[in-house]
Nucleic acid binder design. Sequence first.
DNA 1: GTGAAAGCGCTAACAT
DNA 2: ATGTTAGCGCTTTCAC
Lengths: 342, 342
Amino acid sequence: MTSTRATLQQVAERAGVSLASTSRALHGTGASKAMVERVRAAAAELGYSPDAVGRSLRMKKTFQIAFAVADIGNPVYVEMMRAIHGVLAPHGYRVVVMTTGDTTGSTADLVRSLNSGFVDGMVISPLRTDDRLIQEIQQAAVPVVVIGRALGDHGISSVSTDSAGGIGAAVRHLHAIGRRRVGFLNGPLDTTPGEARQRGFDAAVRAEGFAAERIEVEIAGDFTVAAGLEAARRLFARAPDGAGQLDAVVAANDLLAIGVIHAARELGLSVPQDVAVTGMDDIEIGRVFHPSLTSVSLGSTERGRAAAQLMLRLTEDPGQQAQQVAVGPALIVRKSTDGGAR
Amino acid sequence: MTSTRATLQQVAERAGVSLASTSRALHGTGASKAMVERVRAAAAELGYSPDAVGRSLRMKKTFQIAFAVADIGNPVYVEMMRAIHGVLAPHGYRVVVMTTGDTTGSTADLVRSLNSGFVDGMVISPLRTDDRLIQEIQQAAVPVVVIGRALGDHGISSVSTDSAGGIGAAVRHLHAIGRRRVGFLNGPLDTTPGEARQRGFDAAVRAEGFAAERIEVEIAGDFTVAAGLEAARRLFARAPDGAGQLDAVVAANDLLAIGVIHAARELGLSVPQDVAVTGMDDIEIGRVFHPSLTSVSLGSTERGRAAAQLMLRLTEDPGQQAQQVAVGPALIVRKSTDGGAR
DNA sequence: GTGAAAGCGCTAACAT
DNA sequence: ATGTTAGCGCTTTCAC
């Protein structure tokens, strides 16, 4: 075991050639065959491997991309991260995971920290967006790609989806299978997804002609199963048993939907016979859950992949125009709504 | 928007003091109050923020730790990553996610790549271990902490658990609730967990006095739900309906257990009445699954946290002895086995 | 094709 | 308390 790592300088001395030639030989650019061979041998003898930091300083490139979200444990973000890593790693980029914190302030601070130059770019999926955050992203030291809201108007590269439209697809589906008394379990309205999904729900129930008095809305504290369960209890309590009982619930994401199914079970309601439930995000759990979850896919993997590819382009040419990608929602019908007409 | 980032040199010029004083003032070490104020002002005017790469080169410290696993989408690894990030981020460390690839060879290569000095340490949880990998870890350029097998004998820091004993706890539990015909659904035997869990199962059924002809073992292609479902079908097929039917299945992890429950459902068997099912890892999904999953917790979060804390100590004093931490398994009984005696 | 030298941004001796 | 200087490891002009 060599006690200390060999430097390029040492390889040069060993090979009896200049530092410059050594560097060139190792990169295969403009060096004679003999030189390459000689340097290679010396490098091998010393167990040389190039220092990433020295190279980064000189090249002003770290070969690292940050991925920032509020909670790296959320299945949606995990899927995105996996996709991003899958795209970037083959290109020699490392992925640094970061958390945005809960507030737009801490998120903006994170974007500002890009000034330290520890990554070549950042893919970020903020839960909330405000003017300061937008401004920080615009002024960021490195390319930033946002997964979430479409931010093309602000000259920011983004990968967006139509979650409002997706909720619409869920509502139409429920109407089509004969459900007429629908609940909506949303997450916090001051978040980007919460706002969009509420908008989508309101528009869709109007368009489908649901009677206003046959609609119930409840807001969970966040987009988790636990918060969903609690809020779902309140939701069901509002619409009492019997004729007034909800026969369908649209949840703003799959985790909330799982909470809804639990709450239904507590009340002895069967899913989908008594109450049909839809989620959103199409996370893997939903497929193996019982009953399997009807969900609106927002293409997490696809969005992550698109963001990474976009980032790749931007790092190659940072002066480039901001790019926009949109991924359409897709309703995936499974057992949680597939109980036939009533 | 400043077109280009300010350097320390520029701050020094602006403040009209030396480069060294500027550096000191910004770090608050041995600088007069007046100097600090002056430099701070200049830095603020220029929107200066220190360059991470320059500092890394000089300090020989990157403030980055790598976390390497085969599949960053696996819930167990996600939990570990979250815990590791939670410990390291407050200490100013960034977390770089990496994948080991499927083979021990690619894993060893990854460890070797630490020679490039892009991180100050690596936490790794390899699925398989062989001599070359162990050797690479021993010779690694930076501290490495292994989550998985106890590697103290090799002078390697590790955080281990007793998954063999954990399987034992599951088997005892099933025997205690009166189950006498038990199946074991394991993952690949050439993996560290596969080997240990098989050992644990074999020992436990012997200790509990299960009749050899009342035991069935099946091996899934990997530790996923899909592979589990397939293998579980084979497992049930071996033990035909009626008196010969399995009344309990021990799965080597929760994902496989979910596959088992699906297979049982296909056959019209109810869980836990007809067949009790146990998993391992206590992933979050298991708690909300229906029926909720009896599982052996191996303390993923705790192990991640321990590994990170260990790493923190090692980076502070790399010359330190290898450290060992062991986290005990804990059986958590839920509905998938809680159907009362038969 | 090869070598000499500069310099990326920073910190830490060392000298004053 | 402040300034001067060296140098971390690398790539890339610029001469030859």
